[in-house]
C-alpha cells in the first residue's frame, strides 16, 4: 500500500504542476511521456528476462492463456453495458466504446473523438486513465481477494507496459508473460473494437 501511495502522490503532483500553468513552454510533455514509457518497458523487460520463472508460465499454462484476454473482453463489455443502464446520459454503444479502450487511453480517446464526439473522447481519456491508475493502486488488494489474474484483468491493455511492473510484483514474475500476452492481444484489438462498436 505504501508504494501505491507514493505512486499516487507523484500523479497528484503532476496534476498540480499542470494546473499551476507554470510549466516552461516549448516542451512537449506527451512526447516526454512516451520516452518515459520506453524506458519503463526496457527496464520491465530486463526484470522479466533476468528471472528464470518468467519462462515457466508458457510451459505450464500453454493454451490456457488465450482465455485470459477473452475473459477480460467479456467482463469489461458486460460491466460497461451495465453502466448504460444506470446512467441515462450514456447510450449502450457509447458506454461499450469507452470500455473497449481497456485502459489504452491515448489511442481510444483519439479514436472516439474522431468517430463520435469530443466529449465522449474525454470520457474515454479519463475512464481509461482511471483504469490504469486504479490498477496501479488496487492490484495488491485485488490479487489477494480475486487471485493472480486480477491485476492482469484490471489492467487490460496496460498489463503489457505501464501496469506490468505492479502485476509482476504482486502476482509473481511467472504471471508477467501472461500479462504481456493478454495486454498485447487487447492493445491490438482496441482500434478494431472501438471502430466496430461506434459504426454498427
Amino acid at each position: 500500500m505504501r508504494s501505491s501511495l507514493i505512486i499516487f502522490s507523484f500523479f497528484v503532483a503532476g496534476v498540480l504542476v499542470g494546473l499551476s500553468g507554470k510549466l516552461p513552454s516549448g516542451y512537449d510533455f506527451d512526447k516526454f511521456g512516451s520516452y518515459a514509457l520506453y524506458l519503463l518497458m526496457f527496464l520491465a523487460g530486463i526484470s522479466i528476462g533476468s528471472n528464470k520463472n518468467s519462462w515457466k508460465v508458457l510451459a505450464t499454462h500453454n493454451y490456457k492463456i488465450i482465455w485470459v484476454p477473452l475473459t477480460i473482453i467479456l467482463g469489461t463489455l458486460t460491466g460497461s453495458a451495465l453502466v448504460a443502464l444506470v446512467i441515462p446520459t450514456l447510450t449502450l454503444l457509447e458506454s461499450l466504446a469507452v470500455g473497449a479502450g481497456f485502459g489504452y487511453y491515448s489511442l481510444s480517446s483519439v479514436f472516439i473523438t474522431q468517430l463520435h464526439s469530443h466529449s465522449l473522447g474525454v470520457v474515454a481519456l479519463l475512464s481509461n486513465i482511471f483504469r490504469e491508475v486504479a490498477t496501479l493502486l488496487a492490484t495488491p488488494i485485488m490479487v489477494r481477494y480475486f487471485g493472480n489474474l486480477a491485476g492482469i484483468a484490471s489492467g487490460g491493455a496496460t498489463a503489457m507496459d505501464t501496469t506490468l511492473p505492479v502485476i509482476s510484483h504482486y502476482s509473481g514474475k511467472e504471471y508477467a508473460i501472461i500479462a504481456v500476452f493478454s495486454g498485447i492481444v487487447l492493445t491490438i484489438l482496441v482500434p478494431f473494437l472501438v471502430t466496430f462498436i461506434l459504426t454498427v
Binding site: 499516487f8 507523484f10 500523479f11 503532476g14 504542476v17 499542470g18 511521456g33 490504469e132
Partner: peptide, 8 residues
C-alpha cells in the same frame, strides 16, 4: 510516468 500523466 505517473507524474507526466498528471501533467497531461
Amino acid at each position: 510516468l505517473l507524474f507526466l500523466l498528471g501533467i497531461s
